[in-house]
Design a protein around this nucleic acid. Structure first.
Lengths: 204, 204, 204, 204
DNA sequence: GGCTAATCGAGACGGTACGTCGCGTCTTATG
DNA sequence: CATAAGACGCGACGTACCGTCTCGATTAGCC
């Protein structure tokens, strides 16, 4: 049993104020240009109050994503019975958000926060990719069971390919790639996933 | 023709000293923790000498990659006639380097440099992805001509999927993904690329 | 008469713990580097408990001096009949303590506490100089009555000269002055105080 | 021979701007409430530029006093031939300035700066008391030679008594002492300094 | 015994200033 | 002209204390 807390308890409103300030500044300035001082000031909070909760900017961003203040949002995947169609629809939601500057800013920020390779990166990975990743893996397993996807499909690798392509398209400059819609990628993906007569084995 | 330059000519040794200093610091400290001051100091050069050549840290990194001081290196793709096998071999070289900490550091640094979304990102995109991307697109076109790949294959999307997955695997923390080898992804990719009877059309 | 106090009574041990903590820290760190937080921590007391009793660091020091936890201590002045000799002996006690680092630290602290010129300075002045000052003034008046000191002696100015010289010698760095003993000053003082034939008037 | 200076030389205007800013803030706010940030801001200078020159607030004040930007100013002592009268006049200039709030603020600041007892105190002592002290010692020696002062006068102790009394009167709160003029002290001092028949020896 | 009230240790709070670091620019003497 | 050195104004960093506040717990006097 944990010891009874002593002293003045932390103000939960400060937590949300900080996360919301981070969310707003992230959209307005971008991750690099967002400073701890600005977060504290916008949240109406002392700097120490921020540092008491999170040790770094990256950690704040991780928490903001997790708490839903920030990030790519998507409905739960549809379950119409046609798993391939469901997957295409659902992933389309993510790729569709690449047209929104704030969503792109968030993904870039997450990448920036992850680039130091420290403990923050680990946390970010889990919190950002985690929930959606699980939903995707569920859908992939369902497709394999239904016979719509290859029985030897590497579902982890498939999920990575989706996340990676999403990340890449958010990072590269708009002029280079954003006019390319997601259809080509999703075709490629789904074709790679579906079984074909006599080819399940021996293609490697 | 430009007029003959006057005054003391630039010291070409300084260029390489700076790029090598950047390469070393990138590996030792990571992109974020590498500073312009440290680069200049390690290169034994004044800060002005650095700024006279490149406007930003990102630009130095871009140049270092381009000049071969830094980055993922690969041979030219093999041309055995079996384009799918060639592609798998060649891409395998890239993914194989994810086990080398310095290569991972470089990719992370490039991502970090790209995350501000400015002009640097554009330049980095071109220089980093550029040469390899062209080689890959050539290979893809060749595969389509030979009938090994789908005629309606979106080759741009395919290249993005490769680059994105490579980037993603470099960014996510080692414990999460690096033990997964690239075979699953390459299977997925090649299966998605190859034509199948009666399915080339009408699958969307 | 005030109504009997309700609620939990104050803990008298806290008072002494705080004053002793202040005394120790004053000697160890000096007035400027001694913080309210450190006093509370060393006393094993909450900060509020300190502030409930004294409004400022200066007030604590004043109280500590007054309560005898801290400061220049001296016996009551001797009364042998030779007032000049008594005064010399008694003042010698004060100057003699300038060799003790803690006494010097206390005087320095008092000066520091006084330098802001606020209400604290007033209080410190009264508490620090007060009791000894009264004793000195008594001795001076006695000397005038006995005919040992000039009848027109400005006894306030004399007391100030003593206090000031003591303060000055505590403030200036040891190497500059502490090797000078007090005899020269006391000679000067006593000669200035004693009457002389035909010079009591008209010297100004 | 010292090595030829390299790099951009320091801007001498910054030195004076900082000292003048310190002087103004000292008068306006007092030593304790004057901050390094405010000094830098008022001088129109970065904080680093201040720290590059002086390691502490006390050191700045010491320099400001030395450079004449700050402090008790007095003419050179008069030399009328009557050394006692000259001394009274000259010292009266110092004591007279105790009525000016800015002069009082400066003395208080110097005391505050000295109270930490570190290297700054030593420097302050030398720079503040130094020049005037030498002039005073000269005057005292002259008086001894002329037979106006006691041959066994401890001139160091005399100078300390003057400096100490001046300091003390600046530190104690106005209500307590400033209405007392300096005449009483100067009488006391001069009487203590002048020789008298048959008393030069054997008074101790 | 229940109530009210003041105190206790603990520690979070909004602030201010600290002293340091790095930015990108500038200004020198030396090539 | 370019160079190495390094000062410059600026702004953010993460820390230390300020004096205040808010907890649960304690300890009294009063009904």
């Amino acid at each position: 049993m944990t010891a009874k807390q002593r002293g003045r308890p932390r103000n939960a409103q400060a937590d949300t104020a900080i996360l919301e300030a981070a969310r707003d500044l992230m959209a307005a300035e971008g991750y690099e240009r967002m400073t701890m001082e600005a977060i504290a000031a916008r949240a109406g909070v002392g700097k120490q109050t921020v540092y008491r909760r999170w040790p770094s900017k990256a950690a704040i961003v991780a928490e903001a994503v997790m708490a839903g203040h920030l990030g790519i949002r998507a409905e739960d995947p549809p379950r119409t019975g046609d798993v391939a169609a469901d997957l295409r629809d659902w992933l389309g939601q993510f790729f569709g958000q690449l047209g929104q500057p704030t969503a792109v800013a968030v993904i870039r920020g997450l990448a920036a926060a992850a680039t130091d390779g420290g403990a923050d990166a680990e946390q970010l990975y889990e919190r950002f990719t985690g929930p959606s990743r699980e939903q995707m893996l569920d859908l992939l397993r369902l497709g394999v069971e239904h016979g719509q996807f290859r029985t030897d499909l590497d579902i982890e690798a498939t999920a990575d390919a989706v996340a990676g392509t999403l990340l890449y398209r958010a990072l590269v400059p708009p002029s280079a790639v954003l006019d390319t819609d997601a259809a080509g990628f999703l075709d490629l993906l789904l074709l790679g996933m579906t079984p074909r007569a006599g080819l399940d084995e021996g293609d490697r």
